[in-house]
């Protein structure tokens, strides 16, 4: 008897309850709103990236499409003089001096920075993980934080005169650019190498030491070897940064669009020509389009560096 009442009351309640529970609540609306708006924010970033690639590509390709410059001539030509037409009536837009300039400073600075970065990383992680790391960690963070124009300014006032007094000439050139970039990429490569070393399991070291290896043998044959993918990633990141750095290099490299023949004569990079040139050309002109083609080369290289990092990551994951 009593149970029947409960059931009946329950059923009356059910209908009302069901209606209530089916009605969309304020929370559900908030959820929909929030999810949409945060998704839009994310999409904005993604669309921007695609827009950058598409715009730079379309501007950069117009040299070849609109102005009919041969792409091979562009990449291999040694003369950069967009205002002048050559014997074939073609404008002189050979980008090889800038492309090689960019590659040379990038590779040299990476070669110089790598031993220092790895050495410091080893020191921080293996030799003196407490006192040394505590001192070096803020040093590296500070080095990362110094703006690139300041590096450029120091390059201009310290490194260029130093190069001049040692090697003669103007002091501007690849060597000065390399030194500036070396200091600039050093902190990036170092801190990423530290992360790579840190991810090597402790027992690797203990096992090697237990087998009678010296500390250096352990570091060299065990720790470094298993941290290789991470360290390679760090170096590629550093190279990407060096390749894309504009103002610091522009300030010390001398800005002569000539194929570099030695390390102490003025040269130029993709970025240095871009920073000085874009403002002095008219949008849509060949001179301007040719500069956008340089920007496109820069963009493509940046994508390639990205790809390389991914490939190293994948390979590293496979070998583990």
């Amino acid at each position: 008897m009593v149970r029947a009442v409960y059931v009946k009351r329950g059923q009356v309640m059910n209908k009302k309850l069901q209606e209530q529970l089916l009605k969309r609540s304020k929370a559900a609306k908030m959820e929909r709103f929030g999810k949409t708006i945060s998704f839009l924010a994310l999409m904005l970033i993604t669309v921007t990236v695609f827009a950058i690639i598409i715009f730079v590509a379309s501007k950069g390709l117009s040299t070849f499409v609109t102005n009919h410059v041969n792409i091979v001539d562009f990449l291999t030509g040694k003369n950069w003089n967009p205002n002048v037409t050559d014997s074939k009536g073609q404008p002189e837009v050979g980008a090889l001096p800038m492309i090689s300039g960019s590659f040379v400073v990038t590779i040299l600075s990476a070669l110089l920075a790598t031993p220092f970065a790895i050495g410091t990383a080893i020191f921080m992680n293996e030799i003196s993980p407490h006192r040394g790391a505590k001192l070096l960690q803020p040093v590296i963070e500070l080095l990362v934080g110094i703006p690139s124009v300041v590096y450029g300014f120091i390059g201009l006032t310290v490194i260029v005169p130093a190069v001049r007094s040692v090697f003669g000439g103007s002091g501007f050139g690849i060597l000065a650019g390399t030194f500036v970039l070396f200091v600039m990429i050093l902190p990036t490569v170092t801190s990423m190498s530290v992360d790579a070393l840190r991810s090597v399991p402790r027992y690797y070291r203990e096992a090697a030491l237990a087998l009678g290896a010296t500390q250096w043998q352990t570091i060299y044959k065990v720790v470094l070897r298993s941290a290789t993918p991470g360290i390679l990633t760090a170096i590629v990141f550093g190279m990407a940064r060096a390749f894309g750095e504009a103002l610091a290099v522009q300030m010390v490299i001398g800005n002569a669009a000539l194929l570099p023949t030695n390390l102490v004569s003025p040269a130029s990079t993709l970025t240095s020509v871009l920073t000085t040139g874009i403002g002095n050309t008219v949008m849509g002109s060949l001179q301007n389009n040719a500069l956008w083609s340089l920007a496109l080369v820069l963009l493509i290289m940046s994508l390639i560096f990205n790809l390389v990092v991914r490939m190293i990551g994948r390979k590293g994951a496979m070998s583990k």
């Binding site: 529970l21 009605k23 609540s25 929370a27 559900a28």
Partner: peptide, 8 residues
């Protein structure tokens, strides 16, 4: 799925 989980 039609039930408003927040109210529930």
């Amino acid at each position: 799925p039609e039930i408003d989980v927040y109210k529930m």
